[in-house]
């Protein structure tokens, strides 16, 4: 890694530390400090975990699909996770599912998700690799279908329950499941560690199939491995806050722009740090300064959607 990349990463880290400190200690008051601090720490952990998982998943997915305008969520990854969750409930029964310990439940969901995502998207990317827009459209429609299916199954399970639509609207960064957080954070850390260990191979993978094979990379295995990583990371963020569709797009775009390098050893940490800064800073702004706890995800997704359209119009889809 060159000097400039190191400086940028250090700067981003410093900014994140400052924002985190502000998040934890701003207007703490005198009463019940321990309780408030713990509450804030959990939320901070959730934000950083989601930021890291979404951004790293997006960068990885863009590398494996050789495309700079995709996110796993545009291609239906999170919809698949919600569908799996619903199917698990259907298989085990609502009561049986609720009785399982959080860790077991989550582990089962992530394992299943990884398996299915590798199968499905491995097939899709392998087959459609020569017609990228068609592959994207297929993914988008699969996402629509998965969402309809989850609601379909949910309604059959419990026709009176109308508020089952978990995957329908927005992610909410302000409600993080504290019980899930330790597992989610551990998985994210592990996922990022693996991605960093593979960084040099990811650089080769990004060259495309022919050059990568010529250089002796086990291309197909690598694609499946990266898709598995993406599936794990998407499971984490979807389980914690719900579907995040376009946020990763902005972050990956910024990471590429800021680092001015295609080296994953620099790109991955940069993307994670940028994402964490945006989420923590944004939540600080909206929740503390404007008193709108749930607005951030809407604003971020809206901006991301516009960014996507902009990329589309610029002809950057290939």
């Amino acid at each position: 890694m060159d000097r400039r990349a190191g400086l940028v990463l250090a700067g981003l880290t410093g900014l994140l530390l400052a924002l985190s400190g502000l998040w934890l200690f701003q207007g703490l008051g005198t009463g019940n400090r321990g309780f408030i601090l713990e509450l804030r720490a959990v939320k901070l952990g959730g934000l950083v975990t989601v930021a890291a998982s979404v951004s790293v998943a997006t960068v990885l997915f863009q590398t494996v699909s050789a495309n700079r305008v995709l996110t796993p969520s545009i291609m239906g990854f999170d919809a698949l996770y919600v569908l799996l969750q619903t199917l698990l409930v259907a298989g085990l029964g609502v009561a049986g599912f609720a009785a399982l310990p959080t860790g077991t439940k989550f582990a089962a969901e992530v394992a299943l998700m990884t398996l299915l995502a590798c199968l499905l998207f491995g097939l899709l990317l392998g087959r459609g690799a020569r017609d990228i827009p068609r592959t994207i459209l297929t993914g988008v429609i699969l996402g629509v279908m998965f969402r309809a299916m989850s609601e379909f199954v949910a309604r059959i399970l419990d026709p009176n329950e109308f508020a089952v639509v978990q995957g329908a609207s927005f992610a909410s960064f302000s409600r993080v499941d504290a019980a899930l957080l330790p597992f989610a954070a551990a998985l994210t850390l592990a996922g990022i560690a693996v991605a960093l260990a593979l960084a040099a191979r990811l650089d080769v993978l990004a060259l495309g199939r022919d050059p990568a094979v010529s250089l002796g990379l086990r291309f197909d295995g690598m694609v499946i491995g990266v898709l598995a990583l993406v599936a794990v990371l998407v499971s984490v963020s979807t389980a914690l806050v719900g579907p995040v569709t376009f946020f990763g797009l902005i972050v990956a775009g910024m990471a590429h722009g800021v680092m001015r390098s295609a080296r994953h050893a620099a790109l991955l940490p940069a993307a994670a740090l940028i994402a964490a800064n945006i989420l923590v800073g944004g939540q600080l702004l909206f929740e503390r300064a404007m008193g709108q706890a749930a607005t951030l995800s809407v604003v971020v997704e809206f901006a991301g959607g516009l960014f996507f359209l902009y990329l589309l119009l610029k002809g950057r889809i290939r």
Binding site: A66, S214, L215
Partner: peptide, 22 residues
């Protein structure tokens, strides 16, 4: 193994489009 072959032969295909900015 493909790693071994990469030291024996290099192949350049016709499709030379690369998505990442290098």
């Amino acid at each position: 193994p493909t790693e071994r072959l990469a030291l024996k032969l290099a192949i350049l295909g016709q499709q030379t489009h690369i998505a990442s900015r290098l």
